[in-house]
Design a protein around this nucleic acid. Sequence first.
DNA 1: GCCAACGTTGGC
DNA 2: GCCAACGTTGGC
Length: 157
Amino acid sequence: MPGRRFWLLKSEPTTYSFDDLLNEDDQVAEWDGVRNYAARNTMRDEMNVGDGVLFYHSNSKPNAVVGYGTVVKAGYPDHTAWDPDSEHPDPRSTPDDPVWFMVDIRGQAKFRNPVTLQEVKVHPDLLEMVLVKNSRLSVQPVTNKEWKVILTLGMSE
DNA sequence: GCCAACGTTGGC
DNA sequence: GCCAACGTTGGC
């Protein structure tokens, strides 16, 4: 599919794990609560329906890419920002003038063989991943090649 | 639990 | 607009 792009989403499994996503109705969830401008811009402006998504567990044992899925809804305002009872309220964001955005994602499959951060750091095709270069970005681009390599590694025995 | 790296805030 | 101070992320 021309124009299809690839992304990596991070979460701490103690907060929200890939299994949590797979347990949702239709395995679909709103990727809400992101409060970082670079990550917001990516979700608001770049991510499209059908794009591939890798899921990474941070602060985990081991830290690893654990599965993949797809974008099922492109960027739209994150309504949790103006919900004072949500995890990440931000009074600056309103329905009329939203500050924060999210996408909906569907979990496709868990990797038989999670691709650990250690493996990523030594694999010649993965050394340049944003995951390694800027470890703090929670929504980040993945190249076509990185996607293929990680899927192959992840789905192998 | 520590702390380096990074992002954000706010005084000037 | 700069940059110091502060807060957070996330690997170890």
